[in-house]
């Protein structure tokens, strides 16, 4: 309809000028960086690309990144489901505050997200001496990386689910209860199917961030090659060693993950729109 309203149509000169500015802006800030990424990764050919990835330190980084995401994402899914259930389906005092606190990690610099765990578990941290005497290592080890990752991805799932659950209200669940469903059955058969696409969406975003987080993880990891380097940290080390092909090769894997996430996101949005329309 909009395009049909003659008084709303932008005149062609405006379209051309603004369009050119947009193309320039998007080209400069989105397209060219992405192009550079893949151009550099394949600058020395496919063989060099594959060799850069098929290398023990790179494999270790990939494994560590997958491990961290495999721990952090499910934890935040459980948390996100619990938080959205109590916030969206019940009324209680302090709800607004709780919602704000859940969003807090989004407004904190990634460096600070790492720093807080160093202050807590590091050698000079609160629990540092105790941990050391019991020979438990958190900082500069897997647990620290997981903690920092959980922190930065904390709000993703809850944030997607709360508005969806709120919009759906409680009538369907109440009806299920009156029909004799148990609490768990109500959740599994009524609530979960209603929010599944939103949940998937949240998981997708959470996962992309978990695998790609740099700042927070960098602070707690200690950068031990082959042991505590995630993929983004591995990219940094390779880059700083002027091993550009290898750096961009590993980076291109992360970029592919990002592009896949965007594609899946678009597919989910399209799906949501058609479901609403039907």
């Amino acid at each position: 309809m909009r395009a049909e309203r003659p008084s709303l149509i932008d005149p062609w000169p405006v379209r051309i000028v603004v369009g050119a500015l947009i193309v320039g802006f998007v080209g400069l800030f989105l397209a060219l960086p992405l192009y550079t990424l893949f151009a550099q990764a394949f600058a020395k050919g496919v063989d060099a690309y594959l060799r850069a990835i098929d290398e023990p330190a790179a494999w270790a980084a990939i494994k560590l990144t997958l491990t961290v995401a495999a721990i952090a994402v499910p934890l935040n899914v459980v948390f996100g489901l619990a938080a959205s259930w109590c916030i969206a389906k019940f009324e209680f005092r302090g709800k607004q505050l709780l919602t704000t606190l859940i969003d807090l990690p989004f407004s904190v610099s990634p460096v600070i997200s790492g720093l807080i765990f160093v202050l807590l578990f590091g050698l000079q941290g609160w629990l540092g001496p105790w941990l050391r005497s019991h020979d438990v290592q958190i900082i500069f080890a897997l647990p620290g990386i997981v903690l920092a990752t959980v922190f930065v991805t904390f709000p993703f799932v809850a944030r997607e689910l709360i508005p969806i659950m709120e919009a759906q209200g409680t009538q369907e669940e109440e009806a299920a209860r009156l029909l004799g469903a148990s609490g768990w059955q109500t959740f599994r058969r009524v609530t979960l199917p209603n929010v599944k696409w939103g949940l998937l969406y949240g998981v997708l975003l959470c996962n992309a961030r978990a695998m790609g987080e740099f700042g927070a993880v960098s602070v707690v990891s200690g950068h031990v090659r082959g042991r505590t380097n995630t993929m983004p940290l591995h990219v940094e080390i390779l880059y700083n060693e002027y091993n550009l092909t290898a750096a961009f090769a590993v980076a291109s894997l992360l970029a592919l993950l990002a592009l896949a996430t965007l594609a899946a996101k678009a597919a989910l949005e399209w799906r949501g729109r058609t479901e609403i329309a039907s």
Binding site: L34, G212, F214, E236, F248, A251, L254, A258, L259, L262
Partner: peptide
């Protein structure tokens, strides 16, 4: 283009950093 706008949300910052620096 609409989907592409979210690229900076999805692309790990370190990856963006080295690409922009090289560019």
């Amino acid at each position: 283009l609409d989907g592409f706008v979210d690229l900076p949300f999805a692309l790990p910052t370190a990856v963006a950093g080295i690409a922009l620096t090289t560019l």
